[in-house]
């Protein structure tokens, strides 16, 4: 909320010049991950339609490094004129809480448009003896700190998902972080860890029988996995997934932010693009900028609570 108010305040004072002519030159979308990652793929897919809609060249710049820190910092420090837009996944939010020792604050950015929300599912190794979330929860309660759950990295959405779930049902597990989801999946498949939370992009491993899906942290069941129940159906109020969104420097005039929002919203609702996003398991419910900002604020509150409970340790 603070972000929003600050943005408004600045917008009133600085909106006179730029807005009418925006955009009058090339716009950069900064992706804080390497070319070819999921986030990068989404950004590039939107590129042609976005150019058409804005009538300007739009380019994707990859600024990978430190989760998403390098790219986020780059945009936060750029001119607040709407020509550098950050597109990022969950890391920008969790970094704010976990990496306190950095010259970057999430408050320097204003969330503009939320492209969609992924969902995480709990999947276990193929020979894991238990099959339902209830059995697994009970076992984990009886054996604190013994269930080995992998993740794609400290602070990545699968890690946060695991901690949130554990917190909600009151269990302790042994967290085994990996570098990226690929190696962690491999160890689940090979049975060296018990399981992990993973994005819906892991569906094909469920279909091939290499892992078994237990429950999904979304509002509704996933069309590709009709037999996998949601946590909610099992009585656990747990919905979580990574957030793909666009951010601009907080001092960007509000009417420029509005224009960016409108353009992105139009493009994201293009049937072809929406199809890709849905196929990747994203919840693409349209959200206003205020709703996006509230979602980010809620995530931060949730993460801070985990820190307070000692489940996450900021560095």
């Amino acid at each position: 909320m603070k972000v929003f108010i600050a943005a408004l305040a600045v917008a009133f004072s600085a909106s006179f010049a730029l807005a009418a002519d925006y955009p009058e030159r090339t716009i950069s979308i900064v992706v804080p991950y390497s070319a070819g990652g999921v986030t990068d793929a989404y950004a590039r897919q939107m590129l042609p339609k976005l150019q058409e809609r804005l009538g300007q060249t739009v380019i994707v710049e990859n600024k990978p490094g430190s989760g998403s820190l390098v790219g986020a910092m780059d945009v936060a420090r750029s001119e607040p004129d709407g020509y550098r837009i950050l597109m990022t996944a969950y890391g920008v939010i969790s970094n704010e809480v976990l990496m306190t020792n950095t010259p970057f604050e999430l408050a320097d950015l204003s969330p503009v448009y939320m492209l969609g929300r992924g969902s995480n599912m709990l999947m276990m190794r193929p020979d894991y003896p238990l099959d339902t979330i209830q059995e697994i929860t009970d076992w984990a309660k009886a054996h604190p700190g013994e269930m080995k759950l992998a993740s794609s990295g400290v602070g990545a959405s699968p890690h946060i998902a695991a901690e949130l779930w554990a917190n909600r049902v009151g269990v302790d597990f042994l967290h085994i972080p990996y570098q990226g989801s690929a190696p962690s999946r491999l160890d689940v498949i090979a049975g060296r860890v018990d399981g992990m939370f993973d994005g819906v992009s892991a569906v094909s491993y469920v279909e091939s029988g290499d892992v078994k899906a237990i429950a999904i942290a979304s509002e509704e069941r996933h069309p590709s996995l009709p037999d996998v129940p949601t946590f909610k159906e099992s009585g656990i109020d747990f919905v979580f997934g990574t957030i793909f969104g666009f951010y601009v420097p907080v001092d960007t005039p509000q009417d420029v932010q509005d224009q960016i929002f409108a353009a992105l919203a139009d493009v994201a609702r293009d049937p072809e693009i929406e199809k890709t996003l849905v196929r990747q398991g994203l919840d693409t419910t349209p959200r206003t900028q205020a709703e996006f900002q509230e979602i980010v604020a809620n995530e931060l509150a949730q993460l801070n609570e985990l820190v307070k409970l000692g489940r996450l340790t900021p560095q």
Partner: peptide, 9 residues
């Protein structure tokens, strides 16, 4: 990983 990205796209 980039090659995989192409598949995903």
């Amino acid at each position: 990983a980039i090659i995989l990205g192409v598949l995903i796209i």
